[in-house]
């Protein structure tokens, strides 16, 4: 069965077929939520909410890119959660109880990576997340979808409901802003990945 067949079956109420779509896209949806929200448990909640919402509203899907449709749902869910977080700032108990040396929830060490590489990756991830947190939400989503997830401008435009010109503009500003942050806070970036290392 291809994606279209799964979508058709899911529109008729076939949960198993929708779960096949979940299997295909859950990692993408979760990664996007993780980068936008910067918090593993919150990203899991957002992903679950978005997928349930997608299944409930799948009859409203009228063709086009299912990936873009799903990403639109998760970005809207993330916007909602960010708004709530802005209104009622909370501190995650998990984050308070975690050892700073431990990896943040959602980041697991791959068996093929050496401990040193894993440490560097964790540092890099922390620096990127800090930089992303300084961006406005719409720029953050655009940057994550283009530079981390590798989506085309057109797909991002469809996912965010903006036109391609707006996507270009948001991306340009987001990149410049993050670059300025990372250059200014370069000590946060592992030495191996620094600009002055001459590897870039």
């Amino acid at each position: 069965m291809d994606e279209k067949a799964y979508i058709n079956a899911a529109q008729k109420g076939d949960t198993a077929a929708f779960n096949q779509l979940v299997r295909i896209y859950q990692a993408l949806v979760y990664r996007t939520a993780f980068r936008v929200l910067g918090d593993g448990p919150a990203a899991e909640d957002a992903t679950q909410d978005a997928l349930v919402s997608a299944f409930k509203n799948i009859r409203g899907f009228r063709g086009g890119s299912f990936k873009a449709w799903l990403l639109r749902i998760i970005t809207n869910t993330c916007y909602d959660k960010l708004r709530v977080k802005q209104r009622r700032p909370t501190a995650s108990l998990d984050a308070l109880m975690l050892n700073p040396e431990d990896p943040p929830p959602g980041l697991e060490r791959a068996p093929s990576i050496s401990p040193q590489e894993w440490a560097e990756q964790r540092e890099l991830n922390a620096a990127i997340q800090r930089g992303l947190a300084t961006l406005p939400a719409d720029q953050r989503v655009t940057l994550v979808l283009v530079d981390i997830e590798g989506l085309a401008y057109e797909e991002v435009a469809e996912s965010t409901g903006a036109n391609v010109g707006t996507v270009k503009s948001r991306l340009s500003r987001a990149r410049a802003h993050l670059r300025d942050f990372l250059v200014a806070q370069e000590e946060l970036v592992p030495s191996h990945y620094r600009l002055k290392s001459g590897r870039f």
Partner: peptide
């Protein structure tokens, strides 16, 4: 750097 960022995985 963004492209090298480690991919988070859900638990």
């Amino acid at each position: 750097l963004l492209k090298r960022a480690p991919a988070p995985t859900p638990s």
